[in-house]
Amino acid sequence: MMLIECPHCGPRAQEEFTYERTRDSVVQLDDAPEVAMATLYARTNPRGEENEIWRHTLGCRGWLELRRDRMSHAIVAVRALGRAVLP
């Protein structure tokens, strides 16, 4: 089970987090329909590092962006998403 360094809470067990999707599959509402559908369904799924969106659902509920190696599960970088409203 991965150990994820939440920028707000510190290192926490993976079971506190939920995986959402890859960063490159976030649809913007002003994207053209074809672009939006390609973003949703035509994913690259690289063997290796990828930017992923997670949520610390059973913790601070903050949204995170992880850069993670999908072969080794090594987490390269973590940053908080959303407006920096936390003190």
Partner: peptide, 14 residues
């Protein structure tokens, strides 16, 4: 709740 949070924080954080 998850959906609104997603929109608020990830899709349109500004």
């Amino acid at each position: 709740a998850q959906h609104l949070s997603w929109l608020r924080n990830v899709v349109a954080p500004d």
